[in-house]
Structure formats: structure tokens, C-alpha cells
Design a protein around this nucleic acid. Structure first.
Lengths: 349, 349
DNA sequence: CGCCACCTTGAGAGCGCTCCCACCCACGGA
DNA sequence: TCCGTGGGTGGGAGCGCTCTCAAGGTGGCG
């Protein structure tokens, strides 16, 4: 804890450089249309005084904040057990930094917090928002729409009745369905015929999409070969036991994520040989998990950091646009992006 | 991406409620010294108009931001592989939320980013900072001190020459040394005599402290029983192999964290029985790791979320103090806190 | 009945900045 | 020589809020 010195103002710099506030302001903001000698002089004054613009004063007039909120709506502890968000945050952070924007992190603990988030966003503290981890029928998109803040979602928001609440929604997502298809096709290509699926929590579109991808390939899959789970290792164990009970003859498992695959693998190791008897494929390619399972896990890679970066990029581009044409030319409304996935072969399948 | 409506101002609320701006301001900020009937009236006007105070305008005059920066200075990818930060963030977030403060996240990628962080902090955008993951001789504390921002560190900062750069530094840390002692004593209590230690990266005070704790108990430990590592599972594997080579007769291992313990365990499983031949203790009690190793890992628990919460609490308290006595009464300068750890017995030792 | 004290309210200044607009000063062409 | 043009500069308003201070109203007490 140390003392804050009172910081120099534009006025002070102007006085020192012997020019007006307006000129200093121009220099500080790029120096367009100011004689080179003056620019020099002002720059020197800025350095000497250690001047740093007061962001509050600036925002007050520009109505820009150079800040973006990142909303992580995930009450469950699970989130913190996997590096998913950390990676996305990292991608976001990099992109925002490159655009001199700040990252305001809003973590919610259950839906009671939604009101707070809504209030904050409506309060015009940030230029835009990046929102994660929505569940089916989540009220957050509606809330955010109400707040009137430009937003990009991480993962496709979904509603159980298939409608969109309002307006177009921009999101960045992985090609979960396509990736799942690739995974299952790979198993088929290995000659497996009794392929099981351990799902994620089906109130998340990513889990639903992966299940759909599974079904795309296994068109009339025996329902006993599908076990609902929750993306956790423990859940994966449970589901795997269930599957083995119901269908001892299964010869492959596609788990909706690496974590649940690792749980499944633990169970399988006691009763089967992997991949000889049962081949296993995961999803995500979370390195610390996939490389250290026994055997190493074949999985579907998605570039999580890139997703984060892309979300930020799309949002910032939208904000720029919006700033440029004062009265919304419908020109380049940003649209959603679905990133491709790739199958990563390791030993488990 | 949606449109921002122009938001109502204090003025508008005042007009609607038929009072002055000053009165509305009073009500919005707690309503002290305003007649109850007026408070009512203003509150209603606020609701009807959906008024939300403009933070920029407010900060401009109060010089407070109700925002705290969280600086995570960790270039290595490793960070994102363990839930450590996520948990701390969560604790911090909870505490800040309870005090209506926002969390501005500053992630750095290597030291090139330090200047940016320094500039940001010096820019007076936030009321204080919480800083993590310092390494030995890290320039960040100096930078931050220069910026004059009240700061609480996560983990004890350290300098190789044993000095502090300047002024008193406030930090929150676990009792790494004491926890390590407990772990090793537990192994001794189990009758183990040839106890090895897998260290963390020794440019971090936590790793050094744990090593010191190990040495406190194993006063003249054979240096061959100490293997330097890096807190990762892979590093743990490597170190374990090294130890087994050098000292095949070892009968216990204290790993500086759970991740490296899990790596060690993987190696041990192939060559020894755990815990019969070799007992293993970790550190952190990272549930997703400790509960799923084979066998489940005995470890030293630290309450990471609580550390985060405490850091925030100390910082906020300091800020309050500081606000109260305009000219720093030396009264209650906040001081560092070291949290106790507890040994959690599972099957590995 | 008058005076003083206290509580509530409003007026107004000003936080530090941006941005519009008017001004000044070369210039160049008529 | 005079006026028009245009780039460079400064003046000043105002963003939305807080906070000081003075004005007004009320009650208690002499």
C-alpha cells in the first residue's frame, strides 16, 4: 500500500509546453494537424510531467471506455477444474491488449447474480461484452439484449423451443457436430461397430451438437449405447460403468469431452484392454489430460485460445463499425463463426 | 450487436421527481439526510426511467473507480493447466462483488508486457491491484510501487539477495513451509526414513518454502534425495525417475505440488507398490487431481479460494482506511497474512 | 414572542477531457 | 494591393456527476 501522487492534467502539460489544452489533446490523441515542432514540444512536456490521460474524464465525453466485459456464467465448480476458460481468457486478453482495451471479468455464481451483471452492462461501463457458458434457455442473452450492449457469445446459445429470443445473436463456436462425426467415423474406420457415446450435460448446445454428430453417423444407434453424463471425470466413470453393464459387447466409446473420457478410461482399464477391446475417443484435446491418460487419448482438437481471440476480434470490429457510421449503415453486421476441428490420433483409438 | 439507447441522467431523474440534482444524488448514494417522502419519490423516478449512474462522471469527481486490477504475471502455459488461478479469481470475484467493485484482469505474456501493466496502473484506472505469480527478483513489485497503487500480492514476493525492493509489501500466502513440515513429519510418522523431495521451480518462493520445510524435518537429507522440478506432471515423472535411479531404496516422496506428485505416481506405479513400498504426499489438494490419482493422493490442503477472498478483503479494507483518513494516519496499515494448511490423508501415504 | 440552532434542500462550481467553432496567419491568384 | 483559401491554433462549452455552501424552514427554549 503506497501513496497516490496527484497526477498532472492536460492543463499542466499545456502550460509547460506553452500551448493550449486543445493542442495537447490533439497530440495525445495522435497528433494529426499539429505542426511537427509543437508535437515535439508537447511530447516532451508529457514525458517530463509523466502525464497519463484521465480515462474517466475522457470516457465522460467520448462515451467510449476501451473496456470489454467478459461474463462467465457458470455456477458449477466444474468450470474451474478444466483449463477451458483460462485458455479462452488468454486468447481474449491477447486480442484486447492489442487493441488497447481492458478486460473486465464478471463471474457469476448462479442466476441470482444475473441481475447484477445486467445492471452493470446496462450501466454503460464497457463498450461490449463477451459471454460464455450459457445453458439452454438461459435468461442472460435476453438480459443483455435489454441492456443494449454489443455482445459476442462463446458457444451457440440455444433455446429448447428452437427459437431465438430476439434479434440476431453473434457467436463463435467450434464445429462440435462435425468434430463428433469425424470422431465416430474414425472409430467406424477402425472396424468398430458397437460404438457407445458418453454425452455432456444436454442443457448445453455443445453437448447436444456432439450427440447429434454421433447420431449423424450411427444413424440407428441402440439407445442403450448412449449414456448421459456431465463432462466430468467422475461422470465419465459412472457413464462407462453403466454402458458396460448395459452393453458388455461394446467395442468403442466416443466421450463428449476429454475429462469424461479420462474417467471412462479409468474404468475400462480394469476390465478391458484399450484400444484392443475398446477404442476411446475424446473431445477438446486438453493437453494436460489427453497426453497423460493411459493410453494417451485420441481426441478432437478445437483451438480454444483462437476461439477467444476471434470472439474479441469480432466484437472489436463491430464496435469500430458502429463508431464509424454514426447512424447504423447496415453494411457489415458481424456474423457468427464456426471453427473447424481436427482429429488428433493417439493411442486410445 | 444491438443499439445503445441514450441513458437518462441525474438531471432527468431530478426533473421527474421534482427535486434538485443534489437530492437525487444523495438518494442514489444512500439517501442520508433526505426526507423519507422524497427518498420514495426519487426512488420511483429512478425506477421508472431506469436510471443508472454514469460511472465515468462519478469517478471524475470522486477519484474512485470501484475497480481493482488483478495482475497475473505468468508467461508460462503451465498456469492454465491447473485450476489455481481460477480458484483464486473466484474468491477475489466474490469478495469484490460483495463490495461493488469490478475486477479488471491483466494477463501478461512475458515481461515485455510489464510496461503496459505499469502504465495502466499508473493511469489511475483502478483503486488497487492484486498481483500474482511473481518469480524471484521480479521487477513487477518495483514497477507497481512506482505507479503508487495500493497492492496486495498473492504469495510472498522474494528477492534472491534477501532484500525488499522498497517499502513494506503486503501479501497473502499459505504456510508453505509449515505445510511441508507436516507432510514430511507424516511420512516420518509412518516409519519412512529415506524420504525424497521433488521440488517446484526454485525461482518461486512457494517452492523454496516447501523445500525449506522439507529440510526443517530432514535436517541432513542426502542431496541425492532432492530432485528439482517444475510443478508439472511431466516434470514430476522426470524427477521421480531421476530419484529412483539415484536412490532405489527410497521409501517415500514428498512432491512440492499435486501435479508433480501425480507424475511421480505414474512412474512409481510401474516399479513399486504405493504406499507399501513408497509413500507419496503432494501439496495443494487440487481435488480433480488428488481424488483421481491411483491411489488417491495424501496431500497438504491450502484453501486457495479463501486466499483470493482474503487478498481482496485486505486490499479493500486498506482502500477504505485510506479514504477515511485523508492524510495517512499510520493507524491500521494492513499487514501480510499467512494461512494455515492441513494435511489430508488419503491412500498414498 | 423572539432568537438561535439544526435539519433539509437547492444552486453552482468544477472534476479533466474532447470537440466545435472562430480566429489568425501565411499564401496564391486576381 | 486586396481578397479568398486553408491549415494550424486557441477559446469555450459541456459531458454527468459530487460536494460545498448558503438559504429556507422548523422546533425548542429563554
Amino acid at each position: 500500500m503506497t501513496e497516490t501522487a496527484s497526477r498532472p492534467t492536460l492543463e499542466a502539460v499545456a502550460a509547460r509546453a506553452g500551448v493550449s489544452r486543445a493542442t495537447v489533446s490533439r497530440v495525445v490523441n495522435g497528433g494529426e494537424g499539429v505542426r511537427e515542432t509543437l508535437v515535439e514540444r508537447v511530447r516532451r512536456a508529457v514525458d517530463e510531467l509523466g502525464y497519463v490521460p484521465n480515462q474517466a474524464a475522457r470516457s465522460l465525453v467520448t462515451r467510449r471506455h476501451d473496456a470489454v466485459a467478459v461474463v462467465i456464467a457458470e455456477p458449477e465448480t466444474r468450470v474451474f477444474a478444466d483449463p477451458f476458460f483460462a485458455l479462452q481468457l488468454r486468447g481474449i486478453s491477447k486480442e484486447l491488449t492489442a487493441h488497447d482495451s481492458q478486460l473486465v471479468l464478471l463471474l457469476t455464481e448462479g442466476r441470482e447474480d444475473y441481475a447484477r451483471v445486467g445492471r452493470y452492462l446496462a450501466g454503460g461501463h464497457v463498450d461490449g461484452a463477451l459471454v460464455f457458458s450459457l445453458h439452454l434457455d438461459d435468461p442472460l442473452p435476453g438480459l443483455i439484449h435489454g441492456a443494449g450492449v454489443p455482445t459476442v457469445f462463446g458457444g451457440r446459445p440455444g433455446w429448447s423451443d428452437g427459437t431465438r429470443v430476439n434479434g440476431p445473436t453473434v457467436y463463435v463456436d467450434s464445429d462440435n457436430r462435425g468434430g463428433a462425426r469425424d470422431a465416430v467415423r474414425h472409430l467406424v474406420g477402425l472396424g468398430r461397430t458397437r460404438i457407445a457415446h458418453i454425452t455432456g450435460p444436454l442443457d448445453q448446445t455443445s453437448a447436444v451438437d456432439r450427440l447429434d454428430g454421433f447420431r449423424d453417423v450411427m444413424v440407428d444407434a441402440d439407445p442403450r449405447l448412449i449414456a448421459e453424463s456431465d463432462f466430468t471425470p467422475a461422470g465419465g466413470e459412472r457413464a462407462m460403468r453403466e454402458l458396460l453393464d448395459r452393453c458388455p459387447e461394446l467395442d468403442a466409446v466416443f466421450a463428449a469431452n476429454d475429462l469424461s473420457a479420462s474417467g471412462a478410461l479409468r474404468v475400462l482399464r480394469e476390465r478391458r484392454r484399450v484400444p484392443e477391446d475398446v477404442a476411446v475417443v475424446g473431445f477438446d484435446d486438453m493437453l494436460p489430460v489427453t497426453e497423460q491418460t493411459d493410453p494417451p487419448l485420441t481426441t478432437v482438437r478445437q483451438d480454444i485460445e483462437e476461439m477467444g481471440r476471434l470472439m474479441a476480434r469480432i466484437l472489436l470490429r463491430g464496435l469500430e463499425q458502429r463508431g464509424r457510421d454514426e447512424r447504423g449503415s447496415m453494411g457489415g453486421a458481424p456474423s457468427s463463426v464456426v471453427l473447424p476441428t481436427t482429429l488428433v490420433r493417439r493411442a486410445s483409438a
